[in-house]
Design a protein around this nucleic acid. Structure first.
Lengths: 156, 156
DNA sequence: TATTGTTATACTCTATAACTATA
DNA sequence: TATAGTTATAGAGTATAACAATA
């Protein structure tokens, strides 16, 4: 059985263990449930949360380089190579050499990529909605704000 | 280069991409940075966040079974087997057969395990402190509250 | 010299399935 | 028949190191 299936039960009596106030643990558990739900929802579109994230950035008008994708998604550049290989093989993105720096590849979505993203986004949102159901709209906004501070710290 | 090294830079100009409001993405990125910092800090104690979590629960007076550990940590029972094998090989925990249900193993920390936990906890807290530096004390409490709702939803 | 993308490799984690012993 | 623990395996993710092309 997959662990995700038992997400509802607060697991017997461990609720007052030292971990229940551990932000690292809470972050890991919340992230794991959210992500496996996301992967399940995106499977219908032949995507995973990883490839969906890359596609989302390729669809945006930012025309990110692979290096920018790696930094933003916190992936090693070599992982980005593999993710883009997959998306490109499926015809969802293309690599275009950046004319201003011929070392760099700019990643842009194709028409098919944009269509796939639009369709997948609805499923991704459904999955996220389910994970966030316990939170009010205001709490979701606040959670996003706090997480942005941890995920993208601005140096002192 | 490891991705963790570049956590400070908000990565060029992708900050206003659709992902910057995506709770799933923010959760994943915040969790990844926090966890790799935690793993780095715990390496000095021959632990990882995973094994540290199991040790923390074994140290508590709850005497959790492997099944309870799996549910609480959101791991598959087979992963718990491997984690406890490692901790037991290092003499930090022992499996004791539950007299009330001879199928079940109760996992308890040894004296060495308690000592290792106490030492490791200081490092873990330092790492967490660094990840949470941008947040005030009140914001940390609020973040923990919101994450608990996502990580341990109470069914309707 | 430094950086972008790439290939390669080893390790960790995730996801399933099947088996055993107890209940 | 169902559950706790175990074993096994395949695939996804993480962490490093090295290299060619370009800056």
């Amino acid at each position: 059985m997959t662990p995700a299936a038992t997400s509802g039960t607060p697991s017997a009596g461990l609720d007052d263990s030292p971990l229940i106030d551990d932000l690292g643990f809470l972050l890991a558990r919340a992230s794991a449930t959210t992500q496996s739900r996301g992967n399940a929802a995106l499977a219908a579109h032949d995507l995973r949360v990883r490839s969906y994230s890359v596609l989302a950035l390729a669809v945006s008008e930012q025309h990110p380089s692979q290096r920018e994708l790696a930094d933003f998604l916190r992936l090693d550049p070599s992982q980005v190579v593999a993710l883009i290989d997959d998306l490109a093989r499926d015809g969802l993105v293309v690599r275009e050499s950046d004319p201003r720096d011929r070392r760099a590849n700019v990643v842009v979505a194709t028409d098919a990529g944009r269509a796939a993203y639009t369709a997948a986004r609805a499923s991704a949102r459904d999955a996220e909605e389910e994970s966030l159901r316990p939170l009010s709209a205001a709490e979701r906004i606040e959670l996003a704000r706090l997480l942005r501070m941890v995920a993208f710290p601005t140096e002192p």
